[in-house]
């Protein structure tokens, strides 16, 4: 564990806390893409199957359980909570996320570290995570105005990815055999997807104005 990875994990955790806080405090999930949240739940379920087969550390186990539980809780809230579900921007959240699932699963069948169920699901979760934010970004772009907590949620998610890239650079330099191409290339693609959002986030921060994404 290095400082970059810890910072990445913590900003990831923070993004989820911000999202839960927004939903809990405002009883509203407006601006949040249910499609993206469902993709994240699927990502965590597919990747953390190794909870049952490998033990890495107490930290690792706790974080995995937290990520699975929180992502399922968010999906539950958005779909079933009587107050929260009313604010869901269904008509704006029309990204065809099943194509992302299908496409990344086929990719995982072709590009994996080993042709076993667990390795295929792991690669699938990496590819799917890389594109899972797309429905969220499309929803934000469509709605134009982004409320503060939603903006911060996406910002922390992007920060988490940026820290992971620093972590890989650090590991590559310090661990002689650190080569994890699937995770690293997918991670760079994933971070690249945030570039546009980051650009407008910093502009609004610099001008001390409300975050607005161009149509």
């Amino acid at each position: 564990m290095n400082i970059f990875r810890l910072a990445g994990d913590m900003t990831h955790l923070l993004s989820i806390i911000v999202l839960l806080l927004k939903i809990y405090a405002t009883k509203s999930c407006s601006g949040i893409s249910l499609k993206t949240q469902e993709l994240y739940a699927l990502v965590f379920l597919a990747r953390y199957l190794d909870l049952f087969t490998d033990f890495i550390s107490v930290y690792n186990t706790i974080m995995k359980v937290v990520f699975i539980a929180s992502s399922l809780a968010i999906v539950w809230c958005m779909r079933l909570h009587p107050l929260v579900k009313r604010s869901y921007d269904k008509e704006l959240d029309t990204f065809r996320h099943y194509f992302l699932i299908g496409g990344t699963f086929v990719l995982a069948l072709v590009l994996n570290e080993k042709f076993t169920l667990q390795e295929i699901l792991w690669a699938f979760s990496i590819y799917l995570e890389a594109v899972a934010i797309l429905p969220q970004l499309v929803l934000l772009q469509r709605s134009g105005n982004v409320d503060n907590l939603t903006g911060q949620y996406v910002f922390f998610l992007g920060a988490y990815r940026a820290f992971y890239i620093l972590n890989w650079i650090y590991r590559y330099l310090t661990e002689p055999r650190f080569t994890r191409w699937i995770a690293c290339v997918s991670g760079i693609v994933q971070t690249g997807i945030y570039a546009d959002f980051f650009y407008y986030y910093f502009i609004s921060w610099k001008n001390n104005s409300k975050l607005k994404l161009p149509a």
């Binding site: 190794d50 490998d54 550390s57 974080m63 990520f67 055999r177 994890r180 995770a183």
Partner: peptide, 10 residues
Amino acid sequence: AEADDTKDEL
């Protein structure tokens, strides 16, 4: 398996 085969990241 090599040491970096373990998927220690989240």
